[in-house]
Design a protein around this nucleic acid. Structure first.
Length: 234
DNA sequence: GCGACAG
DNA sequence: ATCTTGTCGC
């Protein structure tokens, strides 16, 4: 079973959550990977509007073939509301439940959201990285903070996202002529590596590419099927 | 004070 | 995030 460190309690108020982020941000390390990547995991949650029940899942893939190695799904509940900038407090608790059920230990983890591309530089990918103590990065579908120049229309093109003079991530084109995704390092990884991994996780190279990279896309399908009762939890 | 605002 | 059909464009 995969393990993690519970660095703090999750039953906090929004004000306490911000204080925790201010404290934790200093522990985040942006650096090149120290080990080669063989497996990568995607994380995501699904839920019915106005309901507290959440369906969380994680799918682990082999980076070179994108074949699924393992997938876990759990039904849990979220008490913290969705507040821009505090997404981690709503989603990480249930994702950790799923994580603890993994038999495999992913080398790196991709999140549906941001890492350093956050007002306090500690988005869900960075926050989770501290608990998991392994490389993590975010790949979001829209911007939380930061500005960027439109990257060239070809797949692979990217331009830096900046915020208060800092480069916090990148707008990356994963398909020709399609809106970019927003990549930013979470913890124990750097931006160039996060961009490279995102492109390597895109099925475009294998003829079935989508804008959203496979780890996140596969997990999104898993948790939605779980929510609709088309699949059973683990 | 006003507008923006990951999922 | 979720609710939903058709429809514009490559």
């Amino acid at each position: 079973m995969a393990t993690y460190q519970l660095l703090h309690d999750w039953t906090v108020t929004p004000t306490e959550a911000v204080a925790l982020q201010q404290q934790l941000r200093h522990q985040i390390k942006i650096q090149p990977l120290t080990k080669p990547v063989e497996t990568i995991a995607g994380c995501d949650i699904s839920f019915n509007k106005f309901e507290e029940t959440v369906y969380a899942g994680i799918v682990v893939l082999r980076l070179d073939t994108l074949e699924v190695i393992e997938e876990v799904g759990v039904i849990s509940s979220a008490t913290f509301p969705y507040i821009p900038g505090l997404l981690s407090f709503r989603e990480i608790p249930s994702l950790l439940e799923a994580w603890s059920k993994l038999k495999t230990e992913p080398d790196v983890v991709m999140f549906d959201g941001h890492g350093t591309a956050h007002p306090r530089r500690i988005g869900i990918a960075s926050h989770a990285g501290l608990f998991l103590n392994r490389p993590t990065f975010g790949c979001g579908k829209s911007v939380l903070v930061g500005k960027y120049d439109e990257p060239a229309p070809e797949r692979g093109a990217w331009s830096p996202m900046t915020h208060y003079g800092e480069t916090i991530g990148a707008a990356l084109r994963t398909k020709n002529r399609v809106n970019p995704v927003y990549v930013s390092p979470g913890h124990l990884i750097d931006l160039p590596t996060a961009i490279d991994l995102t492109l390597r996780c895109d099925g475009v190279r294998r003829g079935y590419g989508y804008r959203i990279p496979e780890p996140t896309r596969r997990t999104h399908n898993l948790v939605n099927a779980l929510r609709r009762g088309e699949r059973a939890p683990d």
